[in-house]
Amino acid sequence: MARTMKSEAKAAGGPDTPGGPRRTGTRGETAPGPLRRALATHWYAWTMIAPVVIVVAVIIGYPLGRGVWLSLTNADESNVERTIGANTIEATYEFVGLDNYTAILTDTVFWSRLGWTVLWTVACVSITFTIGLTLANMLNRKLRGRALYRVLLILPWGIPAFVSVFAWRLLFNERNGLLNNVLNGGGIDSIAWLGDPTWAKVSVIAVNVWLGVPFMLVATLGALQSIPGELYEAAEMDGAGPWQRFRNITMPGIRAVSSTVILLSTIWTFNMFPVIYLLTRGGPGDSSEILVTYAFRLAFLNSPRDFASSAAWGVLILLLLVAFAVGYRRVLRKQGEVW
């Protein structure tokens, strides 16, 4: 009897046979795929994040796509669409492919700007991280007035960057600045802080470090407070000195946080337009100009304004940062860090 029923099922091409029809729902519908199941299960979450995703895609995606397109054209002030009175002049720029990138990469201007940008970024990030970690270690201990010190050290973070830069510009004033007045009072000649190429670079690094220390301080202080105190007590009982405790407990304990803040600080510093532009405007001459300020100069200060070359510089900056982030991530993975 059972053998007869099984043979009838096979003859009918039922679900028990390899060649039978696909399993269906109660009404004969095909079972939903993984994407449909995820949408059906988490529809509320998708609905909540959809507006944010759309806004971010429009705000970031459209300008990025527009910039990439312009970098492949010869668009400048004379051939883009513009309106004069009631008349609209149509755009006449043309597609030129990779000509802009070839011109940039074969020009010594790009490589000189890139060299200074890398030096500026490495100097700012390394000094900022060192000072921030040092201050975080000091504030992680029990001392009187610790809350006041924390507020004072975080204060530069609460002041708008352009206000801080203008204040520092007054301090660096060659004739009436506070710094030169102090030097003159000690019998030392005034320094052309913003008029000498070397001192201008030192000045912009100092201002950017002053602005970046609070971020490093807050991040590393939070990481330090997450390290169990029992580890330090056990190491001290075993005879480990301060440097050994710092190297074997503190640094491994904050590695996950420090690797992230170093990456973020590198990206921000590489594109730190306000400090350079508001303090020195890339001068004297072009000695303190980084990649992003030069791209701005091409698009808005030069005559005629070269939108295509500026967009190409922007795309190259993006590619450099993406390459750095990918390489940095691979290094962390080799070291066993999850990121």
Rank of each mutant, 00 (worst) to 15 (best):
N140A: 15
H42K: 07
V338Q: 12
V315G: 03
F270L: 00
N271H: 01
D99L: 12
M216K: 11
S78A: 15
G28T: 00
A206T: 05
K142D: 09
G241S: 03
P228F: 05
L183H: 07
W116Q: 10
T88E: 12
R37C: 01
S78T: 06
G13M: 07
E236F: 15
T17V: 11
G195E: 01
V213W: 06
L319Y: 00
W199H: 13
T121P: 14
Q244T: 11
E29F: 10
V315W: 02
L114A: 09
E90H: 12
W210R: 11
N79W: 06
W243T: 04
V261G: 05
R3F: 04
I267W: 12
I290L: 14
S259I: 01
R255I: 00
T266N: 02
V151A: 11
E77T: 03
D238Q: 07
A256M: 14
V80I: 02
G241W: 08
G195C: 06
A11S: 15
R22M: 15
W43E: 02
S259L: 02
I89P: 09
L316Q: 05
I49V: 09
T134I: 11
A295K: 13
Y277A: 11
A234P: 04
D196Y: 03
L301K: 10
T30L: 12
V331T: 06
S303V: 15
